[in-house]
Nucleic acid binder design. Structure first.
Lengths: 165, 165
DNA sequence: GATGCTATCGCAACCAATTGCAATAAGGGT
DNA sequence: ACCCTTATTGCAATTGGTTGCGATAGCATC
């Protein structure tokens, strides 16, 4: 049995769509081409921009709708960044989540081994099946903690205490 | 040492603001009043609506800017729901995150005990300090798993229903 | 009570994303 | 090559939220 590698996947998109009664259009071709050159994470609007670089006629709604379709085929996966904006993983090989430092803005990936503790705990206690790829965990990275204590939000102590009752 | 309970906190907001050189305005009074009657989670736009119910002149930008300020005082905390929209916790007593089922749309709270596994793991391996309150974890709850297999996940066949015309 | 500094307001424009709808065009059948 | 069904497109409008900026108004001081 043949396993399709990263590079083989995109050319097959057309057939995958057709097999489901969906259609192969110039606009989809454009987006797929853009995706095939993309690696890792992109925001929705970045994809719109890149599509426009290929075809200036590109319309946002079409791009977002096509992304929905491609997500159903498992070719992309979307989540939400720390600011709530959409973020896409292209060809997610390994399911992973994200860590985002509110201090410096850096982002790291968290693979399922690292998240296993949480995933297993939730499965055990609640039967909840975590979709790791949709998660962005916000906090402060090591260097931002040792660095200055804060500039604004997160570090500010809550000045009131929980009620004793 | 007095411990301030929930009910005592809001009246003090004015002084807390003034202490920082910030101002107590009618608009802020409106929002604080709305918040004092609010419990648990609210979206930003819900708050705007509720403020408008009190004062129809309410402007969104003012509400959002005031929420930023109140967040710095630790009186509210914001995160992002499964769809990336803003969600506020009012007077967060216990830091907690959220679980959201993509099948049925239900939401549960995850307290720090339950998340301890992940939080500790990330602190140990990376020195990363998780801000649990900002996290929404998406996945499928127990009942939605035993129920039908889904419409929106990787590799799942698309159940395409032609429009009923 | 008047003055002055400046935090805050309201507006209008903008950004990211979504949606309803009429017009267009894939692509299977003949 | 032509039809016909219906998936898809593009537009315009909507939603949720943010931002720059001139005008307004807290509030500490006199």
């Amino acid at each position: 049995m043949t396993i399709a590698g990263r590079r083989d996947v995109w050319p097959l998109v057309r057939e995958r769509l057709r097999a489901r009664g969906l259609r192969w259009t110039p606009q989809r071709r454009t987006l797929v081409e853009v995706l095939s050159r993309t690696d890792g994470h992109v925001t929705g609007s970045e994809l719109v921009e890149r599509c426009r670089a290929v075809d200036p006629e590109t319309t946002p709604s079409t791009v977002y709708r096509t992304l929905d379709v491609l997500e159903q085929l498992g070719l992309v996966r979307h989540g939400h960044g720390p600011d709530g904006r959409e973020e896409f993983h292209v060809l997610p090989q390994v399911e992973h989540g994200h860590l985002h430092c509110s201090g410096c803005g850096s982002t790291w990936e968290v693979d399922s081994d690292e998240a296993a503790a949480l995933v297993d705990a939730l499965r055990a206690s609640r039967g909840f099946d975590v979709d790791l790829s949709h998660v962005t965990i916000v906090g402060r990275c090591a260097s931002c903690q040792t660095a200055r204590v804060d500039q604004s939000t997160v570090g500010t102590p809550m000045m009131w205490k929980p009620p004793s009752t």
